[in-house]
């Protein structure tokens, strides 16, 4: 029976730097497969809305502007997204990808959590038709 079996660990650690990172000052590079913010490319989208149906968190809304001309807009809710990448799997036309660079997504305001994707014309039309300018809650 021994006592202080971990003494060697402690002794070695005296000569090592701490393993913890000073996060905001030192950033470790994120792995290539990291699942970050969603990006949508409207070019190949057929509006099947499978991404919408399969999303476990209802974070994706595919909104039809004109079905015949295949004009769609995506409203993406960052705050609901669980970053599971099921939408990437569900999309048969590879329109969706999750960024491995954008993962620091916290915000003190609500507005940045709703992201709109689409062609400029479609977005303008959609904004004019369907949305009212959102009022930011005034900080107390």
């Amino acid at each position: 029976m021994k006592i202080a079996t971990m003494f060697s660990d402690i002794w070695q650690s005296l000569w090592q730097r701490p393993v913890t990172q000073k996060y905001p000052f030192e950033r470790k590079e994120a792995p290539d497969r990291l699942r970050g913010k969603l990006h949508w490319n409207p070019e190949n989208c057929t509006g099947c809305a499978l991404c919408n149906k399969d999303c476990p968190a209802n974070a994706i809304e595919v909104i039809t502007i004109d079905k015949k001309e295949k004009r769609f807009v995506m409203r993406y809710h960052l705050d609901r997204c669980t970053y599971c990448a099921q939408c990437v799997e569900s999309c048969r036309f590879s329109c969706i990808e999750l960024s491995d660079k954008e993962w620091e997504l916290a915000s003190t305001h609500k507005q940045p959590f709703t992201v709109y994707y689409g062609n400029e014309d479609d977005l303008n039309e959609f904004m004019a038709k369907f949305t009212q300018p959102e009022s930011e809650p005034t900080p107390q």
């Binding site: 149906k53 399969d54 476990p56 968190a57 599971c84 099921q86 569900s90």
Partner: peptide, 10 residues
């Protein structure tokens, strides 16, 4: 209340 795919993540 969720479909088969959504439940995988639930």
């Amino acid at each position: 209340a969720r479909n088969w795919t959504q439940n995988l993540y639930l």
